[in-house]
Amino acid sequence: MPVQTFLKEIGGKSVVDQIVDNITNAIINEQLKPGDKIPTENELCASMGVARNSVREAIKILVAYGVLTIKRAEGTFVNQGFDSKMLYPVLYGIILQKDSAKQIVELRKVIDAGIFQLAMEKLDLDSVHKVEQAMEALEQKIAEENMDANAIFEADTAFHMVLVAITQNALLEGICSYIDQITKKSRLKATEKFINENATQQFLLMHREMVRVLKEKDRTKINEVVETHYQYWEKVTG
């Protein structure tokens, strides 16, 4: 493919950012497809009238984002599948956003509602069994004589990741995994809160209701169980 068919002239943004945009747009417009080898550094420099250092910096950025991969002695290629690194820019933007804690809770609510919808479509007997096992593991941690907030938190996280796994959607799994990482402190604080308030049975009831709604595919209750479930997290992030 001739280089000039998808590369634009530099203008407006920094040279490196523009090169990143040009290559990204070529992938979006399917002028470069997954697995394709991108033009060489010399070709990119000539087509846009830029220095080799700028091209190399742009390629480094796209490699770091998981968009491109460098194969020594072969060249640079468009990746052929999802890479969790692709989520980094979005998640950094969320973290650095003003009032990010509140917005992350809102984002997770929207995502969880979608997870329930999709999980209901793909639910099978094996999935139901895994959800029930995760629920039992959470109940066991809460039933222990000396409740450990960290252990309950981990069991709770595992329960939710089982729900996400049912969707068979790598993007959702990646997003939820990173949201879990960046919100660990506040969610652990929420776990400690319901323990201190002797609300563990209420916490379990909320999870059992989530399981019931999923198993019965009761779409009318999705928003209600999601809203109810996040009440303690909202209190510690508000």
Rank of each mutant, 00 (worst) to 15 (best):
Q4Y: 15
E9H: 15
E9Y: 13
I10E: 14
G12E: 05
S14Q: 11
Q18N: 15
I28G: 12
E30F: 06
I38N: 05
T40E: 05
E41N: 13
C45L: 02
V55C: 01
I61L: 09
I61T: 12
V67S: 02
L68N: 04
L68F: 04
T69C: 12
A73P: 08
G75D: 07
F77T: 09
N79G: 06
F82R: 06
D83E: 06
D83T: 04
I94N: 05
I94C: 12
D99Q: 10
A101K: 10
F116C: 00
D126K: 12
D126W: 07
H129M: 11
A134G: 07
E136V: 00
E139I: 05
E139Q: 11
E145D: 14
I152K: 09
E154G: 08
D156C: 00
I166H: 01
I166F: 02
L172G: 13
E173S: 10
G174F: 05
I175A: 07
S177T: 11
D180H: 15
T183I: 02
K185L: 13
S186C: 04
R187T: 14
K193T: 05
N196L: 06
T200F: 08
F203D: 13
M210A: 06
D218C: 01
D218T: 04
R219Q: 11
T228Q: 14
H229V: 03
Y230E: 03
Y230A: 07
Q231L: 11
W233A: 14
W233N: 05
K235P: 00
